Computed example of a mutant assay.
Amino acid sequence: MSDADVILAPLSGTIHPLSDVPDPVFARGMVGPGLAIAPTGEGDVDAVAPLSGTIAKIHPHAFIVCASGVNVLVHLGLDTVKLDGEGFTVHAATGDEVEAGQPLITWNPRDIEARGLSAICPVIFMETIAAIEHLVGDGEQVSGGAPLARATR
């Protein structure tokens, strides 16, 4: 397995199947296959680039990184678009080249929950031409920046 094939966890937390996400668009896999991470820890959290590549789109609440036929969407919490960026600090821009593990957005999952929103983070493999093998199982803990999945072509 080469480093180029590894997809990193964008943040620390507990792995859940997409079907556990309390949003039917994600839960039914309508955006694409993937998994979800329920963030752990307190205070501010950096969401990192899951792979080296180009930021196709970045918003305070979500980003997409693309590289070699692998496109990863990370959505920070649910319905967080309603916050209009409040509580999120963006460290990159659409079109930027990023390295795997590079901090892209800082946010506080506990603040999101205190606002009555879910902090669970769907990690979606969209329009990906590679097969994705999950390296961390449902219910397991993962650290931000640690291997989460592997893309095989």
Rank of each mutant, 00 (worst) to 15 (best):
M1Y: 11
D3P: 00
A4C: 04
A4E: 03
D5G: 08
V6I: 06
L8C: 11
P10Y: 10
L11G: 10
G13N: 08
G13R: 11
L18M: 08
P22Q: 13
P22M: 02
P22C: 01
P24Y: 13
V25D: 04
F26Y: 01
M30G: 08
V31C: 02
G32N: 06
P39H: 08
T40L: 14
T40S: 15
G41L: 13
E42Y: 11
E42P: 12
D46H: 09
P50L: 10
G53E: 04
T54C: 02
I55D: 08
I55Y: 05
A56P: 11
K57E: 11
K57D: 15
I58C: 04
I58R: 09
P60D: 08
S68P: 06
G69K: 08
G69D: 11
V70G: 12
G77C: 02
L78G: 07
T80Q: 00
T80L: 01
T80N: 00
K82F: 01
L83D: 06
L83S: 00
E86C: 02
F88N: 01
A93F: 04
A100V: 01
G101V: 03
L104E: 07
I105F: 02
D111Y: 14
A114S: 11
R115S: 02
R115K: 04
R115C: 00
G116P: 04
L117V: 02
S118A: 10
A119L: 08
C121L: 10
P122L: 01
M126Y: 10
E127R: 07
A130M: 06
A131Y: 15
E133R: 07
E133M: 09
G137E: 05
G139I: 06
G144I: 11
G145D: 12
A149E: 09
R150C: 05
R150N: 08
R153V: 15
